[in-house]
């Protein structure tokens, strides 16, 4: 994944050097600009077993700010916001790795440095007892839950030493 470019970011972005689970790293530029999830829409995407996006719908293109060409073939982690606790993703991967659906709230990072909240469900695709990929459906979250989870995730980040 490429570093985020200042010219793509709206406003003054805070810089993070972010290291992913596979040891790769990327320079993130993050702003406080929220884009609200469009009412009535759904984001749908599929990934292979390693989390690389194989298909996505227009809603993900619009909300993330990335083109379809930039998204497909790239790790879903491109959307990971540094405000998300690592333990949430650990729980997600552990759950779907056992062939079970995972549901939860996520703050995602846009191409322009802003963010959007989603209520996500991830379903593992199991063939002959082996997980071969995932389908993810994201929809508009309740604002009360967003407020609640913002505080919970801040505490979790503190516990991870990332306050």
């Amino acid at each position: 994944m490429h570093d985020m470019c200042p010219e793509d970011v709206r406003g003054e972005g805070r810089a993070y050097e972010w290291t992913y689970f596979d040891g790769t790293s990327r320079r993130l530029l993050v702003t406080d600009e929220e884009t609200r999830f469009p009412t009535g829409e759904l984001i749908v995407s599929r990934t292979d077993v390693s989390g690389v996006i194989t298909m996505c719908n227009d809603a993900l293109v619009h909300l993330s700010g990335y083109s379809r060409e930039e998204l497909v073939g790239t790790s879903h982690a491109i959307l990971r916001h540094p405000d998300m606790p690592r333990s949430v993703f650990a729980d997600l991967w552990s759950t779907v790795g056992q062939g079970t659906r995972w549901t939860g709230y996520m703050k995602n990072l846009r191409r322009d440095g802003g963010y959007y909240w989603v209520y996500a469900t991830v379903i593992p695709k199991v063939v002959d007892g082996v997980v071969v990929g995932h389908t993810s459906v994201r929809r508009e979250p309740s604002r009360a839950k967003v407020e609640e989870l913002s505080a919970v995730y801040a505490t979790m980040r503190d516990e991870e030493g990332r306050g």
């Binding site: 749908v44 599929r46 659906r101 469900t121 991830v122 379903i123 389908t135 993810s136 459906v137």
Partner: peptide, 13 residues
Amino acid sequence: DFMIDLMDALAQE
């Protein structure tokens, strides 16, 4: 196959 996954994901538990 995609429709199956989508309907599974949309089913509330």
